[in-house]
């Protein structure tokens, strides 16, 4: 800290006693909230571990948390873990990419042109009414059981939330701001680049985050339906080999990966939208 700061500023800071007191108090309060947040989960884990250890529940149906961690550790040690995570992430990101691309293209066309909206939007809304998993048999029939059908399914899941947010975001750009652009006689392209794009960015990123959430859901679905590798395959494997520890390990890994990817998007969101006047600053 002191290295990057101007020394006079540092001294000025040091001379304000109230400020330092506040900082000193801030750290313990941070520890307190995390401690409080961890307390209940820790307690649950302890109870869980205890009930299994003292054989209050059948260990072959509900393995202890330590065993689940051990399973993950063993997979990491023999290297199979990275293959599973890698292929799952690859499917998710490809599906996410294609779904987002399609949503952005279609969404902006529909949002920018009245005619396109009347032409495409009802059909897209009708497709949205179909539960996406209903497409699975058709995808498998058309694309086989390999990667393309999985990626398509995931892309379909990602598409709708992103599409809805792109359309909503563009259509709700403040008319008054667009008028400012018009008053400076910006061309249609400049209007899009300088006003519509930045103004609809918040909505777009919200769409990306819910798209990502659905993407994870559809990865599980796609991998449950036939895969020879991946976190979803571990679920099937655990079921078929009567190994609940493998199933639980897979679930834990899904939770961690899901959280991590959402955290990354959230970081991008706060970075890109620091100008936004929302409650949290």
């Amino acid at each position: 800290m002191a290295v990057t700061h101007d020394t006079t500023a540092d001294r000025a800071l040091a001379e304000v006693p109230g400020r330092i007191k506040k900082e000193q108090r801030a750290l313990p309060s941070f520890l307190k909230t995390t401690g409080l947040a961890l307390l209940f989960p820790m307690l649950l884990l302890l109870i869980w571990e205890g009930t299994v250890r003292f054989e209050l529940v059948a260990g072959h149906l509900l393995p202890a948390p330590s065993e689940v961690v051990g399973t993950i550790g063993a997979m990491a040690a023999d290297g199979s873990l990275w293959g599973h995570i890698g292929i799952t992430l690859y499917r998710l990101l490809w599906g996410f990419f294609w779904g987002t691309l399609a949503a952005v293209i279609l969404g902006s066309i529909v949002a920018m042109s009245r005619n396109a909206e009347t032409m495409f939007d009802p059909l897209i809304q009708a497709f949205r009414a179909i539960p996406s998993l209903a497409w699975v048999p058709l995808f498998i029939l058309w694309l086989g059981i390999g990667e393309p059908s999985k990626v398509t399914l995931i892309a379909l899941g990602v598409f709708f939330p992103v599409y809805l947010n792109v359309v909503g975001g563009i259509q709700s750009v403040d008319r008054k701001l667009i008028e400012v652009g018009k008053a400076y006689s910006l061309s249609q392209f400049q209007l899009v680049r300088r006003i519509i794009l930045p103004a609809s960015l918040p909505s777009f990123i919200t769409g990306l985050r819910s798209g990502l959430g659905l993407g994870w859901m559809f990865v599980v679905a796609a991998e449950l339906l036939g895969a020879s590798q991946g976190l979803g395959y571990l679920l099937v494997l655990g079921q078929n080999t009567l190994a609940p520890n493998v199933i639980l390990a897979s679930i834990v890994l899904f939770a961690i990966m899901g959280k991590l990817t959402d955290y990354a998007l959230k970081k991008i969101q706060t970075r890109a939208l620091h100008w936004q006047d929302s409650l949290k600053t």
């Binding site: 008054k176 008028e179 100008w275």
Partner: peptide, 11 residues
């Protein structure tokens, strides 16, 4: 033109 509201670009 100066509008009745500031109409600044928030970003």
């Amino acid at each position: 033109i100066i509008f009745q509201e500031p109409r600044l670009m928030p970003w």
